[in-house]
């Protein structure tokens, strides 16, 4: 496929596919080129990127000490079971 000049409407329509890395290399390059020269679409893209970064950060939370103890205990149990079966 060859390079294509996209208009703003086409870029906004594909913006989330672009940010989700769902486009092929040529389609992504077409959007890159448009964002390089169009301030409005670039601003929109940056806004969505910032918001997505905040959404992604919602996937981190301090694991409670209780969970850490539970996992240690679980692994101790597995270790014990494995030792039993090798005796």
């Amino acid at each position: 496929m060859s390079a294509r000049d996209l208009n703003c409407e086409e870029v906004i329509e594909r913006l989330f596919d672009y940010l989700d890395q769902e486009l092929d290399a040529q389609q992504a390059a077409d959007i890159d080129r448009h964002l390089h020269r169009c301030r409005d679409c670039f601003t929109r893209s940056e806004f969505e990127k910032r918001l997505r970064a905040r959404v992604a950060a919602a996937g981190t939370a301090s694991a409670p000490p209780r969970l850490q103890r539970r996992i240690r205990h679980l692994l101790d149990q597995f270790n014990g079971d494995e030792s039993d079966t090798t005796r």
């Binding site: 919602a58 996937g59 981190t60 939370a61 301090s62 694991a63 409670p64 209780r66 969970l67 850490q68 539970r70 996992i71 679980l74």
Partner: peptide, 24 residues
């Protein structure tokens, strides 16, 4: 990885106890 595992589990389950259960 534990904080991210728990955070992901919390976003999936929306419940701290359920999140601990699925991480464990």
């Amino acid at each position: 990885l534990l904080d991210r595992l728990y955070g992901n589990a919390l976003r999936l389950t929306r419940d701290p106890d359920d999140a601990e259960d699925i991480v464990a």
